[in-house]
Amino acid sequence: MRITITQGPFLPVPPLLGGAVEKVWFALGKEFARRGHDVTHVSRAHPSLPRREIIDGVRHLRVSGFTATPSPARRMPRDLWYGLRVLPHLPPADILVTNSFWLPVLARARRSRGLVYAHVARYPRGQLKLYRRTILQTVSEPIRQAILAEDASAAARTRVIPYPLSAGYFAPSPAPGAANTLLYAGRVHPEKGIRLLIDAFARLPEALRASWRLRIIGPWETACGGGGEQHIGELRSAAAPVADRVEFTGRIFDEAALIAHYRAARVFVYPSLAERGETFGLAALEAMASGCAPVVSSLACFRDFIRPGENGLVFDHRGSDPAAALASALGAFLADDVSINKLRRSAWQSSRAYTLEKIATRFLDDFAMLAGGPGLRPAKPDAGLISAQQESAAP
């Protein structure tokens, strides 16, 4: 099968600057290629990456993009301009996967580029009227419901296939010697609830707090989706009374380094407040696979894989004092090693349903059904396919 994957205009692939969507599709593309499919991955150019290269059997093409911006008024025209740049680079394909806003509209005029398969990674914002003839794939049941609320006619075209986890995240078992660390990993932005996490940690009984550390990993820079200098300054000020127990590491985009932090912690806290911003909670699932017990806010997206009291804890972030609710949940939990270890093991076992191999199979089965049914066979490499060395050297 010929599969083209296209990313948006703001983050490169490999995910040098982070990005859950970029990380996931980078891994899926390699898995598709490993199974014999012809895969092209188009993404934003970056100064440290060649415009063309082959990585683990995937042909990468990179097109000039833009620096990320929090302004929708600036994002939309940049996405359109980027989509117009990408169009000439799209090879003939059976399936065209894209998470770009405009590309599903721009690319559908020429069927030879592939059946458009739109990865809807966020709550829809009115764009579905433009995608009336497009397959829609999202990552959780709440987003599927939001899609159908916007366009009830999309039911037959919509499927839920969750994010996968690469093999490196799966610890052999929850490490018995992991430190008493509460870990957060993700963007350092006001909508992620980090301020309430710090406040909750400060409210823990002093004796309990003295035996735990809070480590916060993630970018605060606006170019990486963070809240900027003012926000990180506010967080550091809030943490000042317990500064000896709180650590801000900054951004860590290296996957091996991030996994090492997951495995060194016992509890992962993801207190997001983003009612319309979180679609899946990939960081929480990564932490579960690495051996952490997850503690999350009561956003709907976590319900697909976290069962309260069984493989994780959920606190009410919508009440009048969410920091108190989180502190109460943590206070009882952190003092009980038996409960922590029980939830760590259960969370680790639950994560096994999200292996890259299992999720890739679901995508490929869907692609085959859409593009031609079971008779469609994995593509053989084209006779004229140039070598990785030639491709990397191409202008």
Results as ranks from 00 to 15, higher is better:
residue 129 K to D: 07
residue 49 L to E: 07
residue 163 Y to A: 12
residue 35 R to D: 05
residue 139 V to G: 01
residue 338 V to N: 10
residue 281 G to M: 07
residue 210 A to H: 12
residue 266 R to G: 11
residue 230 Q to V: 15
residue 39 V to I: 09
residue 162 P to E: 12
residue 329 A to D: 09
residue 387 S to G: 15
residue 173 S to R: 14
residue 208 L to H: 05
residue 344 R to I: 13
residue 281 G to S: 04
residue 162 P to T: 13
residue 125 R to E: 12
residue 158 T to A: 11
residue 143 I to V: 15
residue 133 R to T: 10
residue 290 S to Y: 07
residue 381 P to E: 09
residue 332 A to C: 03
residue 6 T to Q: 00
residue 177 G to N: 14
residue 181 T to Y: 00
residue 184 Y to A: 06
residue 77 P to H: 12
residue 165 L to M: 11
residue 330 L to F: 04
residue 226 G to F: 03
residue 255 E to D: 12
residue 65 G to I: 06
residue 213 R to G: 10
residue 162 P to V: 03
residue 301 C to N: 05
residue 184 Y to S: 09
residue 67 T to H: 08
residue 319 G to F: 05
residue 126 G to E: 07
residue 254 D to V: 02
residue 326 L to E: 06
residue 59 R to A: 10
residue 145 Q to K: 15
residue 294 P to Q: 10
residue 123 Y to W: 13
residue 31 E to P: 07
residue 211 S to L: 05
residue 146 A to K: 11
residue 292 C to W: 05
residue 297 S to V: 13
residue 235 L to V: 11
residue 305 F to N: 08
residue 40 T to N: 00
residue 161 I to N: 08
residue 376 L to R: 13
residue 33 A to H: 00
residue 225 G to T: 11
residue 171 A to P: 14
residue 42 V to E: 00
residue 347 A to P: 06
residue 127 Q to Y: 12
residue 63 V to Y: 02
residue 339 S to H: 04
residue 373 G to N: 06
residue 266 R to N: 04
residue 218 G to T: 07
residue 102 W to K: 01
residue 223 A to V: 12
residue 25 W to M: 07
residue 175 A to Q: 11
residue 356 L to D: 10
residue 125 R to N: 07
residue 226 G to K: 09
residue 246 V to H: 07
residue 380 K to Y: 08
residue 71 S to H: 13
residue 140 S to M: 02
residue 197 L to Y: 02
residue 315 F to H: 11
residue 281 G to F: 11
residue 124 P to G: 12
residue 373 G to E: 04
residue 251 R to Y: 00
residue 165 L to E: 05
residue 159 R to L: 05
residue 309 G to C: 11
residue 135 I to G: 01
residue 297 S to R: 11
residue 69 T to C: 11
residue 100 S to F: 03
residue 313 L to W: 02
residue 21 V to I: 14
residue 345 R to I: 02
residue 265 A to P: 07
residue 233 G to H: 05
residue 112 S to P: 01
residue 322 P to T: 05
residue 260 A to K: 12
residue 228 G to R: 04
residue 357 E to P: 05
residue 336 D to P: 11
residue 104 P to F: 03
residue 362 R to C: 01
residue 249 T to W: 02
residue 47 P to D: 05
residue 51 R to N: 08
residue 306 I to K: 04
residue 30 K to P: 00
residue 25 W to L: 04
residue 147 I to Q: 03
